[in-house]
């Protein structure tokens, strides 16, 4: 039996969510947390493509032991509301690496919501999210970083860039930093823009057709999110899934 009730948009973490799609999914989905714990010194990497024709909610709780390293890379190309939530607890000297891409049109909302808690000293985290949208779609990145009083020498970075292929699409970035230690580094950046028309014309002037020019530019744009993914096969799988979603996008 579900103990959860549906959140509302007044909840900060659900501010840009698609509430109708969430209702279709039902409150039961909120209980479905995937709990993963990394032992001290362990290194684990996971790459995944999420999204289908129905709403999807992926909730992950990561506990990363002392000196351990967790890497998560996601292509979020859902055909309906698709939300990936990650809660991370970092022990001393642990690292969390996240690379995410939301891509798509069709009026759909796709989002990443992360909460990274630096509760012990010397832990590091790096998050890179790219959003490419068109046709009334929305891409969101809500990233919360909490550095507790004991989290001295924490180093946390968050980088978001949105690319809107037409005006009737949107991207929301909500970085939230809560810092209670005095010797920490926290960096975050967020930009949203359109396709570089000068670059597109340059490519066309060399004979590249408009669709290929767009694909090359989008590929370069989202590539940042998977730079840290060292497994070349997995990197290509995630990139290909993202670029496949681009087929049929407005030029």
């Amino acid at each position: 039996m579900s103990i959860a009730t549906l959140p509302t948009r007044r909840d900060e973490a659900w501010r840009y969510a698609d509430m109708d799609a969430l209702a279709r999914l039902g409150a039961g989905a909120l209980d479905q947390w995937k709990e993963i714990a990394l032992a001290p010194g362990e290194v684990r990497r996971h790459a995944m493509v999420v999204g289908s024709d129905s709403p999807e909610l992926h909730r992950i709780r990561l506990t990363i032991g002392e000196g351990a390293r967790a890497e998560l890379f996601v292509t979020n190309a859902g055909g309906d509301y698709t939300r990936v939530e990650v809660e991370v607890r970092l022990a001393r000297g642990a690292h969390f690496e996240f690379g995410g891409v939301t891509i798509g049109g069709a009026g759909v909302t796709r989002e990443f919501v992360t909460q990274v808690v630096h509760g012990e000293p010397e832990a590091t985290s790096n998050q890179t999210v790219r959003a490419v949208h068109w046709a009334g779609a929305t891409g969101n990145f809500l990233g919360e970083i909490k550095v507790a009083r004991h989290g001295q020498k924490s180093d946390a970075a968050q980088d978001f860039k949105g690319l809107l292929l037409e005006a009737v699409a949107s991207a929301n970035a909500v970085p939230q930093l809560e810092i209670f230690a005095d010797d920490v580094k926290c960096a975050h950046g967020a930009t949203v823009g359109a396709l570089d028309e000068a670059a597109r014309f340059y490519m066309m002037a060399r004979g590249v057709d408009p669709a290929t020019a767009q694909r090359l530019l989008v590929q370069a744009f989202i590539g940042d999110a998977f730079v840290a993914l060292e497994d070349e096969g997995e990197r290509e799988r995630l990139l290909d899934a993202a670029l496949a979603a681009l087929e049929g996008a407005r030029l």
Binding site: A199, R206, G207, V208, L216, L217, Q219, A220, G223
Partner: peptide, 18 residues
């Protein structure tokens, strides 16, 4: 024009083959 993230080789091969 500068095109970050796209190599000359990839760009020119796409262009020539197009």
């Amino acid at each position: 024009v500068e095109i970050p993230g796209v190599s000359n080789v990839q760009f020119l091969r796409e262009a020539l083959n197009a």
